[in-house]
Design a binder for these strands. Structure first.
Lengths: 341, 341
DNA sequence: CTGAAAGCGCTTACAG
DNA sequence: CTGAAAGCGCTTACAG
């Protein structure tokens, strides 16, 4: 004869104590005699009491909820197909779960939506992926005054917590690798090249290295959608307009996937006719044929790190400014998609 | 001079009405004169009032939260790499968002965890992927007495809401296709073949069709992990132990991906040496080389449908039992990975 | 060591 | 049409 809901009041009655005492036992607070505590615990056990987080939230203003905000495709309003997101969320979810926090996944298109999301849900923190400088998302997150971590966002404000990788070095590593193999005509296949985006820094890294060999050519910089479709569509540009190209640096594995496909249709062989590098090192790169040479980052760790930075903010906002930007390492993983010229 | 939190009380003061009236305006309930309502609305607008869902939840017992439960790999406790999940969640998120519901994504390994998750969060509904008959997950969901929808679960209890595809027909379609092409020695590459799993039905479909041509051979049924690694690992079995095989039906695109890789390493050509089919039709199948012939399902729609079934339960539990199981269509998409023998 | 009481921000009968 | 009051399930001073 369990009641419909086992509440703290119910437990208190069964254990012959006040609800205050039950609360103290649950939260290990105040002084409670071991004898009483023991009794309360056994009643909790017996009735399988599970606290009501909404009530707790209302009282303490903590929701034990982190929001994860990703942008969505327009106009379909779908999450993007890039496995990068899934690996990221996998890391976030695993780390947050370990601390009894849950993850609310939200595709957002407008600042108002973000504001409502953060405030109505009383989120304890929010992780925002790929925010741009001066974006309304950043403003909203700052105004709402909750712990926030930006992933893959190059925001100048030093007070913001950010997790990223060394994109510039990654770009440089890819370029260096191809230069060493003798390539001098290298196309760069970038996603949208907005100011201070990850693409921007990957591009800078490439540019610096290529320039050192006098091999940087602005006309070989191609912007396309960061998707398999985008890589596929860009292939024709590359092979038709610039037949002199011998290598392509893709700023994302997913564009390399599309590029592979189109090149294959056109009868090109990789790496014989064209060397190709990717970026991210998502799981499928190991299964591409030929295996993709790529700039590997630990996407899951990015998520884990973001969660930890959220916890730092919850604990205190005194975390020194110098420690608020974390840059994770990247390294070249040599596959079979690059060859000496 | 906004207060730290704009509450209903604050709005009531500014609008010179009671909080009850504010509440009525917000929820379009009770009788409020248009004049008053207008005033209240403008104050809400002015102070950008955003309700507190925790308070609302406590009072109404509705959280506007749906849980999505996926199983995790052991022992790493990671979400699985299969893009199937991402596409599914994409559909769920988009549909739920349209109704102001948010999605809590949770990797779960134990029934206790699931129970705590559902009850503490006051979830309004839960979507469970791939539950097995008699699994403790199903018991927990039933006991907790909240709307639940099972995806890709063949549960016998007719009162349960389930969304799936016609797995048997899908398996049959793959087999039929290969038989038509003249194949008679066909291996089946399945994930774990537990009773009443999707794999089980895909297998049944294959078996029936193959048997009709006297071509079913139990020894050609191979179980492996549903992952690219699983497909990769199974390849050696297939080509070494059973050189007579001319085609492989993979019960998942992701295993086909791994299989492709290993076959390529071994010098096999697809479809010349071996015809291959996949299952699911996830985005990357269009980019496999050769393009994978696969049994396509609309994964996003599966998610959308599950959310709608959740809403049906919220509205009433009187939904006729016959309508509680929804089976979505599948169809063969012919790629380039299958050829006449 | 223990409990009575206030209060978090809402909604919902109910009275007027 | 409008508002005072109770109450959802907790936590937290505070008093004893």
């Amino acid at each position: 004869m369990l009641p419909k809901e086992v509440t703290i009041k119910y437990i208190a009655e069964k254990a012959n104590v006040s609800i205050a005492t039950v609360s103290n036992v649950i939260n290990d607070k105040g002084r409670v005699s071991e004898k009483t505590a023991e009794r309360v615990r056994s009643v909790i056990q017996q009735y399988q009491y599970q606290g009501n987080l909404a009530a707790k939230n209302l009282r303490t203003n903590k929701s034990y909820l982190f929001g994860v905000v990703v942008s969505v495709t327009q106009p379909e309003r779908k999450l993007k197909d890039n496995p990068f997101y899934w690996e990221l969320i996998s890391g976030i979810e695993a780390e947050a779960s370990g601390y009894e926090f849950s993850i609310v996944l939200k595709g957002i298109d407008s600042a108002e939506e973000l504001s409502a999301f953060i405030n109505q849900r009383n989120l304890d923190g929010v992780i925002i992926v790929g925010a741009e400088e001066n974006s309304s998302f950043v403003k909203v997150a700052e105004e709402s005054n909750i712990p926030a971590v930006y992933i893959d966002s190059y925001l100048e404000d030093v007070s913001l917590y950010q997790v990223r990788i060394d994109d510039k070095q990654g770009g440089a590593a890819a370029a260096k690798h191809l230069l060493q193999l003798g390539h001098r005509k290298v196309a760069l296949l970038s996603g949208k090249l907005t100011y201070n985006s990850v693409n921007h820094f990957r591009w800078e890294g490439c540019k610096e290295e290529l320039s050192a060999f006098d091999s940087y050519d602005e006309s070989l910089l191609i912007e396309t959608d960061t998707s398999a479709e985008g890589g596929y569509a860009a292939a024709d540009d590359i092979i038709e307009k610039f037949p002199e190209i011998t290598a392509v640096i893709c700023f994302s594995d997913i564009t390399a996937l599309g590029l592979y496909k189109r090149l294959n249709e056109k009868g090109y062989e990789i790496p014989k006719d064209l060397s190709i590098t990717g970026f991210d090192g998502v799981y499928f790169t190991n299964y591409m044929i030929p295996e993709l040479t790529t700039i590997k980052q630990d996407v899951g760790k990015k998520g884990v790190t973001a969660v930890n930075l959220l916890f730092e903010q919850i604990k205190s906002n005194a975390w020194p400014v110098e420690n608020r930007r974390i840059s994770l390492p990247v390294y070249l993983v040599e596959g079979e998609s690059t060859a000496p010229l």
